[in-house]
Amino acid sequence: MKGIAHFASGVAAATFFPWTLAAAQEGNPLYFILGGAFGILPDTLDFKFYRFFYKHDIYIEPVPNETTPQDIADRIAAGVALAMDREKMVRIKLSTIRLGADYWQQYTVKFDAEKQQVMVKFGPVVNTGQVPVPGTEPEKGAVGRAALPCPLHITYDASSNVDIFDGPTFGFKKDNQNGMTFHFLPWHREWSHALTMGVFFSLLLLPFLGWRAALVIVAAYSAHVLEDQLGFMGSNLFFPFTKSRAQGVHIMRSGDSLPNFTTVWLSCLLMFWNMYRFQAAPLHAIGFFQIIFWGGILPVGFFWLVMKWLTRNSKTAGHETIDTSEWEESVSV
């Protein structure tokens, strides 16, 4: 999920503890801040710290107007071959190709497990919102293909767009089935998204902030971890007792707007409910279901219905990211 969803749910989790609200009324925002900060912390640890220290075995840094799709495909295949000779995971870093302050050359890497090959294709130039820049759509361009030396088991999406900011990391590791398992972003949620890490941080700060803060930390951190389990990638939930990521339940994708918004909005309603309940003498009488209905179901439901009606006839607009699942045969460059 997006950072704000995790942040909001962390704060909402904190508001379930009465000392959070009591302290805030006295002017002490500590527990609110802890809820938000530890709600977003797992991703902060990965994206703002860990990934800069994560060593790779192969760095693929395409040069504009020089590097071809075949070059990239060959290098990826070489990385898989390298992994065959090693017990440890081989990590391949794919860099993005920046063309301007707001322009990125998109390329797509796709693994075909059936044909045991990797395919690479350049797409349009996209902006930072991943929206293609008009006029930069490729002609029927070359597709780079390289055979993989062994069967590949794919645990995430078979196709990855490499476009904005930091490019992805691919991990390849020998598995027990005489093949290779493909790991997408192996450094992400490797240890940071563990329930045990929440306990670790709470114990670390317990002597300084007290047991109440420790409980808030555990609740907020756990909320983040459990929310991410709703997705595809999953997390290593009990690091260091477990070694690999447990698959998610595949209900949603991290960038989907509806689940993100619903989480944020529901968190806000829960915060409001907790603050309302904590009043000594409420001036207004409202119930939980009234808040959820009038504050959540009605406006969101109304919006959803209207959107459905307005978009009933529309096709996918040209503003969506180009669907690269169709890989036509073409001549390699």
Partner: peptide, 22 residues
Amino acid sequence: QSVLRPYMGAIIWVIITFILMS
């Protein structure tokens, strides 16, 4: 206003935290 007023300070701090951490 009646519900949120006692927590305005904390809410502002939460917003600051998000601005800096996001």
